[in-house]
Design a protein around this nucleic acid. Structure first.
Lengths: 256, 256
DNA sequence: AAACTCGGTTTCATTATATGGAACCAAAAC
DNA sequence: GTTTTGGTTCCATATAATGAAACCGAGTTT
């Protein structure tokens, strides 16, 4: 993500920085973590606020993501996400398994959740949509990675830091590769508490045609509710759902 | 929205153009509607695609909004929207009235729906979040406009085209002003099929303190289900909900 | 109260970047 | 085989971004 892009790239970099921190940020905070000099950063922020991409709280002198993004995302959601297509299938699956169902796609090496459903307690449903997670330590992430064309995959992994979230997290591409081979074989991926302690999941890739994987769907639960083996028994159902979704993807959708 | 801003402004203008059209767009389409020359537009698109703000379909040679936006919007959603705060109240209201409940904020003169709930048939719920609508012909829009400080309001109205969606739509600020006065008086706004034929709504502004309005909440229905008079009987309930939401807004949130 | 910080904002000469007319290219239409 | 259409690249020029330094206002310290 260090490609040299023009002014817009830099501006978006700033936008990202603000969005990444989960709270309103002061100018000075941004300044130290940013590679830009004072005046430059300042002008970027001005521009972004002017466009509504950021909101500025004059009182507290803090910046936060702006509403304009919500509007833009609405369009993205409709066109570039699996969510609208997959919705009924996600619903149905959630109804059957009574566990959290996640729908994800990959974007610049990050897994991005484009839909979530949880029939048990229905709060919090879509609030988490748009959340991102690393690919190398999540079920959906590995399911997608495994079926990505060679080049795209190493590209995606290259920009990963391999943060050891839990004792089970893969430490490097070395240990990940064999697992990806296996996933490609079996058509199913598992998250064995690799991202969050106590959280496990099964995931199946969504593959509309031989050439490409467009996303993945997973069933997640906590170790206190179910064991990994129990979860494994849901694999066929999951795969079934995944292929049903895949069947509805048009050949022209979701270009790589 | 015609302020001359630097390169970022222009780039975002292009981004908007792509997002506004509700479908993948060709380069040539964008070219004719854009004020930029070929090469310039081309490079903007390249940049935006490079950043993941747009996705490019090489096959069909079309551009569409990119997933990166979904990710960014997630952050915006959490910080700059009323949605997280209002959620339980919106839920409760939807449960009681059994009609569509909309939560909206204003952004650059546009009403932007940050949450929607419909307890009758639950599909389509949040799919429409992020949708925008004009302020001058919607219940939520007028409720907000009425309580906006003088200057901000005319600012907001200035960038409106006053499109006559239905026979009941206000044609100009002239006819809108008296109604806004009345809304300010009564603390409640109505949409009398002004935006969509057959759709009516009641809306109440969300006013955390005397100085500012941060959004509005509305109950919408179709004329075939209920009359406007029936809808009016729900005003107290609606106002009650609005003030409950307002009470939870912290003084530092939602700067103007 | 004068001097000093500590954010944040503005200036301005310099430099890097965006610009856009024109040329170019590939594929489709004639 | 030629022309048109739609998209991409070149390159000299104009423009906008840059960032060091100065500035400003509101606290703090001396």
């Amino acid at each position: 993500m260090l490609e040299r892009n023009g002014t817009v790239g830099k501006a978006i970099e700033v936008l990202d920085q603000v969005a990444d921190r989960g709270r309103p940020v002061r100018f000075s905070e941004l300044l130290e973590e940013s590679r830009f000099p004072k005046a430059t950063l300042y002008r970027f922020l001005q521009s972004l606020v002017g466009q509504g991409m950021l909101a500025y709280d004059a009182e507290r002198q803090t910046y936060m993501p702006g509403l304009r993004l919500v509007r833009l995302a609405h369009a993205a959601w409709q066109h570039s996400s699996l969510a609208p297509i997959a919705r009924p299938h996600v619903d149905a699956l959630a109804e059957v398994v009574r566990e959290a169902v996640h729908l994800a796609q990959i974007d610049h090496g990050h897994v991005i959740f484009v839909d979530k459903r949880k029939k048990t307690n229905m709060f919090d449903t879509l609030a988490q949509t748009g959340l991102i997670a690393p690919s190398y330590c999540t079920g959906v992430g590995k399911a997608i990675l495994a079926f990505l064309p060679e080049e795209t995959r190493s590209e995606a992994l290259k920009m990963q830091a391999f943060v050891p979230y839990t004792p089970h997290t893969h430490r490097s591409p070395k240990s990940l590769w064999p697992e990806l081979d296996q996933i490609r074989d079996e058509g199913i991926a598992f998250d064995r508490e690799e991202h969050e302690q106590g959280i496990i999941s099964v995931a199946a890739p969504i593959i509309p045609d031989q050439r490409r994987v467009v996303g993945a769907i997973s069933i997640a639960t906590s170790t206190s509710r179910r064991s990994l083996d129990e979860l494994k028994t849901l694999s066929p159902t999951l795969r079934e759902t995944a292929s049903r979704i895949a069947a509805e993807v048009q050949p022209w959708q979701f270009p790589n």
